[in-house]
Structures are given as C-alpha cells and as structure tokens.
Write a protein that binds this DNA or RNA. Structure first.
Lengths: 198, 198
DNA sequence: TTTGTCCTCGGACATTTGTCCTTTTTATTT
DNA sequence: AAATAAAAAGGACAAATGTCCGAGGACAAA
C-alpha cells in the first residue's frame, strides 16, 4: 500500500535520521513517555518544543465550541507534531493525545531551527513531511464527502483491518466527521450483508 | 481579518521576495499569462516547474472518478502551486485552473531546488507557506462538517462579501463539498429571513 | 447476589442533503 | 433582434444522517 493511503501515518525516514543524529552525540533530542489518554498538546496554547513519535500512536484533533472533536490524523512512528507553530508563530492549532503508550523525542524550537538551518538533510526531510501531509489531507476530506459512509468504512477496513481493535469507535467516527450513530448504523448494515453471504 | 481565515489565500511576503530576487537579476522566474478557465496543471500528470501567482485568482481542485470536483483552495497573489511534487516526487495531486486572468511566475524544479538550498530566506518562506497551508485546511474541513451549511455560508459571506460576484456558485458549492442544489436552498432560506427583517 | 453506574447499541422520528428534472434568467453568437 | 448556449433557480421525491432516548450488558461496590 502506498505510504499516503495509510490511516496511521508514519515517517520511517525521519526517525532513522534522528537515530543517526543521536548516535553522533547531537544531544538535541530528549526522550519522553506518555500514557494512553494523556494530552501532550492542547489547542490554542503556546509551546516551545517539537515532538517526534518514536513508538506508539497518537491522535491529532480539533475541538469546536460545542465540544465536538474532529480527528485530523492518527500519528505513528516518525510523525512529528508541534512543528507548524515554529513556522507560523501561531498558537497550537490542534490537540494531541496519546492513544497507546507513547515514546517521543522532544526537541526545543531553538535546536529545531538550528538543525533546519544547518542540516540540509534534516531540512529536506521536514519539507518533504509537510508536503506529504498536505497531499494526504486533500483527498481524504474530498473523498469523505463524495462517497457514502459505507464506502469509506470498507476502504478503511481494507487498509487497516485491526481498525476497531486499536481505535475506539468514537475516534473512528470523529475521524470520518460523522456521528457515532451513523457509524454504528453502517457497521450494522455491513454485518447483515456478510451474514447473508455466509 | 487574520491571514488564515480568508477564502482567497495570498502570500504577499513571498511575492515581495520574488520581486526582490528578480530585481537582483536572478533570472529564475519567467512570467506567463493564462486566460480564465485555462487549465495550468492537471491531476495525475508530471510537471517540472513551480508556479507563483503574481496577479489573479485560480482554483486548486481534485476530481474523483465520477467527475465530481472538490475545491481545495482559491489561490491569490503570492500563492504557489506545483511545489509539493518537488518534495514528494509524486504526480500532481490536484488540478489548477485560472478563474480570472492570471499572471504567474514560473520557475523550474532545478532552480527552485537551488534556491531552497542556497537561499535561507527563500527556504523559510516556502516552509512557512506550507505550515500555514496545513493549518488552514484543518479547521476548514473540520468546521464544514460540524456546522450547518447555513452557518458556513454566513461565515463565508462575512469574510468575503463579494463572494458570489467573483466565484461561480458551482465553484462555491464544490468548495464547500455540497451540491449546487443545497447551496441554492440555503441561499433562498437566508434571503427569506432577510426579507422578513427588512 | 443485588444495586447502581457507565457505556454501547440501536429504534423511531425529524431534518438535512442529494438526485433528477423543468423552468427561468443571463450571456453569447449569428 | 433572434437564436443558441450556459448558468441559475427551485419543485418533488428519495436517501442519508442526526437527535433523542430507552434497552441491555459489563463492571464495581455493597
């Protein structure tokens, strides 16, 4: 499956490169751990570090005034967060919460900027990651509106069979931009179809 | 209004910097013109240049198999397109079409890469533009799913009163991810409300 | 075991949105 | 001006989705 169709996004290339940097005794990266459901970044707050996931899964989501969440991405190995604010200078535009136990690398804005300026390879990897992220989000939102929920679920299940075991239904619904009720309805319909076949 | 809430996106900073580079006799940028409705980039094709809008408005959109379009962004002054593929190496993920008469700067991948590597200011501006783009798209898709069409239209009209004069209704509908019928229905309802008040 | 709490699922109904199609309006060409 | 094409508007119905709420299961405390 192509890199940009996965539901849980990863960036092994970046992770490998950070490993290399760490072995070179560049002590910019500090390891931290988080438990499931711990919030690492909150929307509309200011931070001074960028995080890169070493192990585990986190969700990146926006909350609106009514408390509804909309999940942007599920972040896996090698995905970073908190980096957009380095460039834009804005407050955090999303919240990040651990889904599984999480190990992350943490690097200060200062060191992150230093690497961007002085390490061409690092600079490129960050650029590439942003470009891929933009390209990933576009079709996702587009297709979710063009196709029925049923199609989207089938697509998800195909791409990621363990789906419902790792990620809660509520999260899946929030990822698809639908209510839990609608998700259940479609799952029920799909099960009926399968029973008829079997 | 904050930069990232505008419907037609711009990046004056980048445009100004390109002007400076051009005056320094850096001949990487070639000017081109397009007429309304001309396609400049087609989805799934390969290109070798990056474009930056000098004047005019274009739309960036994805088409699905059924011929439905989903508009990602309306691009104005200083917005670039075709640059994501420099980093990802993929085919163009979207189509770009001129809405008004368009003047653009065109720069080859080679020169674009050269500038990225050797001009820190340019590198930063490109990074920043990508970060803003990511931050812009997230809440847009999120809110479009959380709120009613009516709310979204009111928001758009507030942010951009000339809306319906510059951009066709079909395009607005495609931008919102709804059908033209739904858009008309809501506009009708809004008009009724206004008439009752006046 | 019983009770109470929390969570998930799904029924019933209301609302929204889409599809299909016809009519009206506006713009363009001859 | 007439003819034609293109864009906009809206009626009627169908389908999808959301809201509200109650039933039942899992689990913890008594």
């Amino acid at each position: 499956m192509s890199e940009d169709k996965k539901m849980i996004r990863t960036d092994q290339e970046l992770l490998d490169y950070i490993d290399i940097l760490c072995r070179l005794d560049i002590n910019y990266f500090f390891e931290e751990r988080f438990l499931p459901k711990q919030k690492i970044i909150e929307q509309e707050k200011r931070y001074t570090s960028v995080f890169i996931i070493k192990e585990g899964i986190a969700k990146c989501y926006l909350s609106d005034e009514n408390g509804k969440d909309f999940i942007q991405e599920f972040l896996g190995k090698g995905m970073k967060f908190g980096e957009l604010e380095v460039f834009s200078g804005n407050l955090s535009f999303c919240s990040i919460e651990a889904i599984t136990r999480l190990e992350v690398y943490k690097i200060s804005y200062t060191h992150f900027n230093y690497l961007l300026e002085h390490d061409k390879r690092f600079n490129r990897l960050v650029m590439k990651a942003m470009a891929i992220k933009i390209g990933y989000k576009a079709p996702r939102h587009s297709y979710q509106q063009s196709y029925t929920i049923e199609d989207n679920i089938l697509k998800l299940k195909k791409a990621f069979p363990e789906l419902t075991e790792v990620i809660s239904k509520k999260d899946i619904a929030n990822y698809m931009g639908i209510t839990l009720r609608s998700l259940n309805r479609v799952l029920m319909k799909l099960n009926e179809k399968n029973n008829k076949i079997n």
